[in-house]
């Protein structure tokens, strides 16, 4: 039996498993092209040879790289455009008045930069199921998009997506913690 050597430490340690796995032979990682039909330059693919076992599984690694932008009003901490988080009340997707200046600044930027593209990422806290929370987070990103639409921004410049609870602080014990998770994040293409 062969297993993937870079995993043994962090594997679900359904670990009676590893009692047996430690006795197994490791196979060195081999870099060879994966059959990935994904042309993105950020998708690194490093399949590992898992052996000829019929139960063998080919591993694929898909790390995304954070891009560093240079001098840019969107990144300038003194510019309101660097403010990217809009927080919501419990069970609500209404954009509160206190976030109006942020929404207006980003609308102005998008109107002035016709080729700029924004992604609004909705978020929820961890209560409830992952897929349902993905849909709930989407409500919040759509609410931000609608606020931008009202200021004249076209849909073609905005994509609304959701991370659901995937970026949530976990094991919250109080409202302070939960509140931080009820959020929409503004991200620009190239951020």
């Amino acid at each position: 039996m062969k297993h993937l050597p870079n995993l043994s430490g962090k594997i679900i340690a359904v670990a009676i498993a590893s009692i047996f796995l430690v006795a197994c032979k490791s196979t060195p990682m081999k870099d060879k092209p994966a059959g990935v039909e994904d042309k993105s330059p950020t998708a690194a693919t490093k399949p590992a040879d898992s052996g000829a076992d019929t139960s063998g599984v080919k591993e694929v690694v898909v790390d995304s790289n954070a891009n560093n932008a240079g001098n840019n009003p969107l990144k300038d901490p003194n510019n309101i455009l660097s403010k990217r988080n809009i927080y919501f009340d419990f069970d609500s997707d209404a954009v509160k008045a206190e976030y109006r200046p942020i929404v207006e600044a980003h609308a102005k930027y998008l109107l002035a930069h016709a080729d700029a593209k924004m992604v609004v990422q909705g978020n929820t806290d961890e209560r409830g199921t992952r897929e349902y929370n993905l849909s709930l987070g989407q409500r919040r990103s759509v609410a931000v998009k609608k606020a931008l639409n009202l200021l004249g921004v076209q849909d073609k410049q905005i994509e609304t997506v959701s991370y659901g609870e995937e970026k949530a602080a976990v094991n919250c014990a109080d409202e302070d913690c939960y509140q931080k998770n009820r959020r929409a994040d503004i991200v620009y293409e190239g951020d």
């Binding site: 995993l7 898992s50 591993e59 694929v60």
Partner: peptide
């Protein structure tokens, strides 16, 4: 039974 775990895909 949880044995023989193998990674299908990993990501950050």
């Amino acid at each position: 039974d949880g044995f023989n775990p193998q990674t299908v895909v990993s990501s950050n």
